[in-house]
Design a protein around this nucleic acid. Structure first.
Length: 853
RNA sequence: GCGAAAGUGGCGGAAUUGGUAGACGCGCAGGUCUCAGAAGCCUGUGGUCAUUAGACCAUGGGGGUUCGAUUCCCCCCUUUCGCACCA
């Protein structure tokens, strides 16, 4: 169909397209008209869309822009579709970088944060992004964080917030503890420092109470990426098994273990406890090597998790034994560095025959291996490794009542037996741990708790909220939280007895702030309550949530948890906060580094050589960062080409969920496209009034484009939506060159282009004498009748190879098609003299003639 | 090690349910305009062979199903990401 149009030959009109002039004008116009402000109480077909609110670091580059630009394009599309679309924005404004800036440069965290917010807000405006700023919030303001504190008190009241001493992750560089989710490969998520274990008393939120609901809820999230759901599922780590008590004669008590393979209990030849297990002291009390064992335990406990793993498997024999409840044998109780106190019961029954870890440990210490599972087909498993198959292809052997049973059946049966004997029960356990929310840092929400010598831990009464963060504290950078040194903050009165008491000086993990902010937007200015449940129930859950994959577990898991607690408090009527989730891919850019690994500025590189030093460099595509000298700042780009060009290029570059490499040359294509659209507008304005009529071909192309672009919007296929608009604009250009009219098609083009290039389309729309904003006009409707081609091309294949094409009137009739093929010389050459075995006719598409000989 | 996703021109990428592989754009080449350049415009642009007509090859590699495979199935290779002693 494209072939019908020769390339555009129109002459550009003289008036230049100057984005600078029109972009500021329309940004002001939208803002003055408050076009994006939504009255949440007003009726309408609601659509709540949300970009994850950013941490205001101050510098946004074109990579960040992708997230917001695609959100804005969607927002404008839904507006034009007539939806009551809400698109709010706020700031995840607490956090370490602000505090570090204070230490390094003497700027107060609040001032640093607020000035960054100002800069980023300007950047959003310059990108032409529309947010409902009347609902803006910043988590560092008391108006926001008081509700964090309120929420914490509700959780405390319900037993979901508790203080406990536990081995926790400590980042020596950031001088604070971290949640499990913030430790990546044994290192701090923020600064990559190796995390060490410390025993500290800390505040936890009981997310594990919700493990099953968080796991099951994933099944209801049809519009979430499978990848994210899988990551959450793995993180929650549900496993089904059994708890079993093993009697320890020397202690006259029993030790409980957890296993997912109770069917292998006849093969349990020893037991292993975590070095931290509470019964260890009693078990080794009479051991002659007690001192050595204790030294070893202390050593293991001092290791980071990373070091522990790198050390390989190590253990010590306690000297005590336990009774295997099924074989009644005495089996040795060992300590092992590979058994984790935080999972299960901190104790395992070791079945070296059928668990690789137990096998390795047994080999190392010469412990017996017993085979109790065999392949159902009778082959003897290798002695080199454990045989851990647990499906119907394996069978239990030498295992009392379950001998001969297929494994899934054997597991079921042995659990019945365990329960009948009263030594244990079926058990579901999770890898997920409780959420550690204490942080020994200043720039966060103070935890609203008071310690009284007489009354113990006392919550701050709700009417005394917020517990405000004092602003005039010294930032020295030395160990310890500045809050803890502020006497005026720390010293307070006990709400119960009125006596002297001390405040909690830890602040909350900033992921608490972001776990419910999406609901606060609905009541952002309500100073009397966390939010208005009736309004929140109308607007939530968020219909479309957009953000980076880096939050697949952290933020999204915490938000799903807190969402359920709000539900259970009776405040809301939904369990999942985000109906649809979209993760945009990262924008990358080429950078250059020398053989020694130093990054150099691209401006100093020529033909693969770093000019100042003469060193050869290699190109590497990666994340934009200052240290790689590959950051593209939007301001220069906008000054040169305009925000509309950046927007079009950003969405055209690749499918939005994929990683994409930014190309400075590629931007030019988007700029040319908008220039052509601009000049076409001028040409159409110069057409005589009344004018001619548009060709059927152009009308067809227009309606086909409306249809395609609409479908592509619904599927987030922005790159092909834009290429479709380029095709339409090419067709319009050709029509104009041929002296034909194209007014109607052009008007449709402007509307379809608006979500991508909002400024230029508003300007042209006005130039054509339209009143109001193109944004508030309606999305064009495709007329399917006008989309139908009057001639269709039928592809002719011979033995599956393309040998010709015939054109027939639409709709095509089989007889007509076959007649056309018989009249086609080229095709006939390929079949003449051969026997036609078969003719495959795909209506309206192709004919494949199968010949022989 | 386990799990997931992906692999198409020089580059980014396109291809409803299996039905013309390479849309759209970048880059490149030639042309036009210009004193010259930039910008714009026009034409061409997967590879090999051929003067042309055209033929053959080609969607990471190998097999299979099918009239027909980028698309479905099996094996292998590569890359990226997630998890990693969770009993």
């Amino acid at each position: 169909m494209v072939k019908a149009f020769p390339r555009h030959r129109y002459t550009p009109a003289p008036m230049p397209y100057e984005p600078k002039l029109i972009e500021e004008k329309w940004q002001r116009a939208w803002s003055d008209a408050k076009v994006a402000e939504v009255d949440v109480a007003a009726p309408g077909d609601k659509f709540y869309m949300l970009n994850m609110f950013p941490y205001p670091s101050g510098d946004l580059h074109v990579g960040h822009g992708r997230n917001y630009i695609l959100g804005d394009a969607l927002y404008r599309y839904f507006r034009m579709q007539g939806r009551a679309a809400l698109n709010p924005m706020g700031w995840d404004a607490f956090g370490l970088p602000a505090e570090n800036a204070a230490i390094k440069r003497g700027i107060h965290p609040r001032q640093w944060t607020l000035s960054n917010i100002e800069r980023e807000k300007k950047q959003f405006l310059r990108w032409g992004i529309l947010y409902d700023w009347s609902k803006e919030l910043a988590s560092c303001e008391p108006e926001y964080y008081r509700w964090n504190q309120w929420l914490f008190l509700q959780l405390y009241r319900r037993g979901l917030a508790y203080r406990a001493k536990a081995p926790v992750n400590w980042c020596p560089s950031d001088q604070t503890v971290l949640a499990n989710e913030q430790v990546i490969d044994g290192r701090c998520e923020r600064c990559s420092t190796i995390v060490v274990q410390r025993d500290l008393e800390q505040w936890f939120l009981k997310i594990t109470d919700y493990a099953d609901r968080l796991d099951e809820g994933l099944d209801t999230l049809e519009h979430w990426p499978e990848k994210v759901k899988l990551m959450q599922r793995n993180w929650i780590g549900r496993s089904v098994g059994a708890d079993v008590e093993f009697a320890v004669p020397s202690l006259s008590k029993s030790i409980r273990i957890f296993t997912t393979r109770p069917d292998t209990i006849y093969g349990a030849t020893f037991m292993v406890l975590a070095p931290e297990h509470p019964d260890v002291a009693a078990l080794i009390a009479d051991n002659a090597d007690r001192d050595e064992i204790e030294t070893w335990i202390a050593g293991v406990r001092n290791q980071s998790n990373l070091e522990r793993q790198e050390a390989g498997k190590e253990g010590r024999f306690t000297g005590a034994t336990a009774t295997n409840p099924f074989t009644n044998e005495q089996i040795p109780i060992w300590l092992g560095n590979f058994v984790l106190m935080q999972y299960g019961t901190g104790a395992i029954m070791a079945v070296p025959g059928h668990d690789q870890r137990d096998f390795e440990f047994a080999q190392q210490y010469g412990l017996p291996v017993r085979v109790v599972v065999k392949p159902a087909n009778g082959e003897v498993p290798s002695a080199e490794e454990s045989y851990s198959v647990k499906d119907d292809s394996a069978v239990a052997v030498d295992s009392g009542v379950i001998s001969g049973m297929l494994i899934p059946k054997a597991i079921e049966r042995i659990i019945e037996e365990i329960e009948r004997l009263g030594i244990g029960r079926k058990m579901v356990r999770y890898r997920l741990r409780d959420w550690l929310i204490s942080r020994q840092r200043y720039w966060g929400t103070p935890i609203p708790m008071i310690y009284c010598e007489r009354d113990g831990i006392v919550p701050v009464p709700e009417e005394e909220l917020p517990v405000e963060l004092p602003l005039d504290v010294p930032f020295t950078g030395r160990e310890g939280n500045p809050l803890a040194k502020d006497e005026r903050f720390v010293n307070t009165k006990c709400p119960v007895c009125g006596g002297a008491a001390k405040r909690e000086t830890d602040t909350m993990d900033t992921f608490v702030d972001s776990s419910w902010y999406y609901a606060r937007f609905i009541s952002a200015n309500d100073s009397t309550k966390i939010f208005d449940p009736s309004l929140v129930n109308r607007w939530l859950p968020v219909d479309q949530y957009i953000g980076g994959i880096e939050h697949a577990i952290l933020h999204l898991l915490y938000a799903r948890f807190i969402c359920r607690t709000l539900h259970d408090m009776g405040l809301t009527n939904y369990e999942e906060p985000f109906t649809r989730l979209f993760n945009q891919g990262m924008i990358t850019k080429e950078g250059f580094r020398t053989a020694s690994g130093n990054w150099v500025s691209p401006s100093e590189v020529e033909n693969g050589v770093h000019k100042p030093t003469g060193t050869p460099v290699v190109s590497e595509i990666g994340k934009m960062s200052k240290s790689r000298y590959n950051v593209v700042p939007p301001d220069e780009l906008i000054d040169r080409y305009g925000a509309d060009t950046e927007r079009v290029y950003t969405l055209f570059i690749a499918p939005p969920e994929k990683e994409a490499a930014w190309s400075d040359e590629g931007v030019v294509g988007a700029s040319r496209f908008l220039n052509r659209v601009w000049h076409m507008g001028e040409q159409i304005l110069a057409l005589p009034a009344g004018g001619g009529s548009e060709s059927a071909a152009l009308i067809r192309k227009t309606h086909q484009t409306i249809d395609a672009v609409t479908r592509r919007f619904d599927r987030f296929e922005f790159n092909t939506a834009i290429s479709g608009l380029m095709e339409l604009s090419n067709a319009i250009g050709d029509a104009l060159s041929a002296g034909a009219d194209a007014r109607e098609s052009y008007a449709a083009l402007l509307k379809l282009l608006h979500p991508f290039a909002p400024h230029i389309t508003e300007e042209l729309w006005t130039m054509f004498g339209n009143e109001g904003f193109i944004l508030t006009s309606s999305w064009p409707q495709a007329d399917t009748a006008l989309m139908i081609e009057d001639v269709v091309t039928i592809v002719v294949q011979v033995n599956g190879k393309l040998r010709g094409q015939v054109e027939v009137p639409n709709p095509p009739e089989k007889d007509v098609v076959l007649a056309a093929i018989r009249a086609n010389q080229k095709v006939q050459q390929w079949i003449s003299g051969k026997e036609v075995v078969k003719e495959v006719y795909v209506p309206g598409k192709l004919v494949n003639i199968v010949v022989k000989g």
